[in-house]
Design a binder for these strands. Structure first.
Lengths: 213, 213, 213, 213
DNA sequence: AATGAATGAGCCTTCATTCAT
DNA sequence: TATGAATGAAGGCTCATTCAT
């Protein structure tokens, strides 16, 4: 919670992330984390008060490094913020951004098994959380929003042809969600994901950038 | 399959179903079920030996109810068997069958609040069961297969226009899967489902029958 | 308890005996007996009220058939009771009786693993029973008494030479007890038992009868 | 072997020993030990993972105490090592060593009321452990070996007269084993033990040293 | 800050025993 | 008599959490 996560805390979170990826949420015990961190039981409690506490901290940390893992339109175009030059020149095309978005989604789907999604699911399923702080719901909404943004930009610039942007965004978001579900439960190949994405994109545009993974 | 399921067992499975849909799989304890069923610890063990055992029984029960309630293309057209008239005339059109299929899927998604998909995901994701006896995978594959069958029939009869039947089927199946997942986690309105289905159908045909729920 | 053990009860006791032989006392459950007897739980309780009850009944039954299993001097010589002729003529020699006694002890030691001794031990060890109704103590005392009787008879008749009959009897009884203990815990060969008995007998007499097992 | 046994562990083993000697092995539960030790369930599991684990630890502890307290022929003569005088003169006679051995056995038998043999028998009889790591078997073999050694030394020096050393050793060992068993089950007086030992020794020698307990 | 032994609640599972039929 | 479903107590084990050092 403190502004400066101590070296120890970072270490704990890194190790904890691995564990959550591997074992989900419900099966992780304080002991697991203690063992992985080479820290004492008491020492761990000095920093975090429960497994949930740690999990939430992992999630928060995830978000701040999020630009590496989860593509958001903001992040992709945001690099311009650090430039004092002409922001237009740094603005990526809608196609580029969409390609980046899909690439990111694909990466997320494929590495699913060593990601946090299982843990997330377990965490939220035991939690009757309100829709507002529901991670999956939030993820879905972000996804729809990002797609809409990109596609409507692309429609304006002539890169995409799409009459029903909202419909397309929702449709794609559901397909991605379906893929994520299946990936959680079954091993999914890269080809499967590619096939699906291509199918959707047919209705819109050429997808050259996406092809070169 | 369930001929011998005693009154008690049915009661247990019904209660257990509620619990699984509320709490997922991993969070459910024998104690939870005992409490919900107003049964004794020992009494429960008399019928089921573990949470997994109960979960599997819930799934099996689900299937047998399913065959009564859930439309499959075979069932829908099968009614002709009981007619002594010209069987051809009883053959439903592809449109009718597709409408029935979608109606069924919609019903399934909407009653999802008391659905098992979260539990299913938790169960299978910690389970490395072979794809063959994986319930979700099986459900998905059935879904794809049913859609393909209907659509290709419809394409032959001129009811549908679809160049890539397999692609369409997969796409729709993923959307449905995504809807199921979201429905588990968030309340989803009938409009939401309708909107999504309409979007997909645009690419294919008029869907008059589907409209009158 | 009733004077006439019903057919059912005899059946139960027979099956129970097998089970106690195999599993000792502590590990035997009512369920085990129910299963073995093809009887219902309730049915069993109609006859016996607990595992202990059954075990005690098995023991009592054992005693009445005891002449088959456990040699006592009375039994060996008692056959005369059924003769109306001259009882003296039916009286076995001390040597014969001793041989029979030892043969019986040997048989008992060797078949230890499928006897009731383990069950007995377990039963009494959880039972702070007074020395008087302590089975092992009783067995030991009987043993000493029998030996004394036989040996002193034999000393009178000149068959045995033994200055300290009581000492000899106790000594032999302890050796037998030691053999029984070892047999409970380790597999003991017939040779081992023979060797030990011969050693003891050296101090007394020829033991021809014993040799032909 | 026991250097690291914490104060708590020693306390647990001491209490457990009492329990095993009172209740045997199979009747002892973790709960029994928890209650006796005034320790928490979890606390006990921190040190030992099962009743068997504790029992084995008790046995091991027994052994290490044993080497301090129990006479073995080696220990008795070994004292010469610490003298700078003529080691030959410190060599104990066979009689002395035998007296010491018997005294030790007697002490062991008499304190048997809090002895473990019942538990040992129960433990091993339900256990088919290999003879090699069988505690009782090992104890018996050691006993035989020690006796043989002493007696054959004594035979050479003329202290004892014994034609069949091996036979005598086995006989004595079985008697001692029998005494140990009986002592577990019944209260045995010092006189009883003395009587038995004297009886055996008659065949060999004067036993002056043994008399002064 | 850090340690790790100890606690106690909670869940799992098995049985002896009862009781309505 | 006989049945077997149901009960509840008992024992096993695991963990989150605390606390003296």
């Amino acid at each position: 919670m403190g502004a400066k996560a101590s070296r120890t805390e970072k270490h704990i979170l890194a190790k904890a992330r691995e564990i959550f990826s591997k074992k989900g949420f419900k099966n992780v015990t304080m002991q697991d984390i203690v063992d992985a961190c080479d820290i004492s039981r008491g020492g761990l409690y000095l920093h975090f008060s429960s497994v949930e506490d740690i999990f939430l901290a992992v999630l928060k940390a995830e978000d701040s490094i999020g630009s590496d893992n989860e593509a958001s339109s903001e992040n992709v175009e945001g690099e311009g913020d650090y430039l004092d030059g002409i922001s237009v020149s740094t603005k990526l095309s809608a196609s580029d951004r969409f390609a980046a978005f899909l690439k990111e989604q694909k990466r997320f789907i494929l590495r699913r098994k060593d990601g946090l999604s299982l843990a997330l699911m377990e965490y939220y399923s035991g939690h009757n959380s309100s829709p507002d702080n529901n991670y999956i719901k939030g993820r879905f909404d972000d996804c729809v929003h990002t797609i809409e943004e990109i596609i409507s930009d692309g429609a304006l610039s002539g890169e995409f042809e799409c009459e029903d942007v909202a419909g397309f965004a929702r449709n794609l978001a559901y397909v991605l969600e379906g893929l994520k579900t299946m990936a959680t439960v079954v091993s999914i190949s890269e080809q499967t994901v590619d096939k699906e994405m291509f199918y959707i994109l047919q209705g819109i545009v050429p997808v050259d950038q996406y092809i070169n993974n």
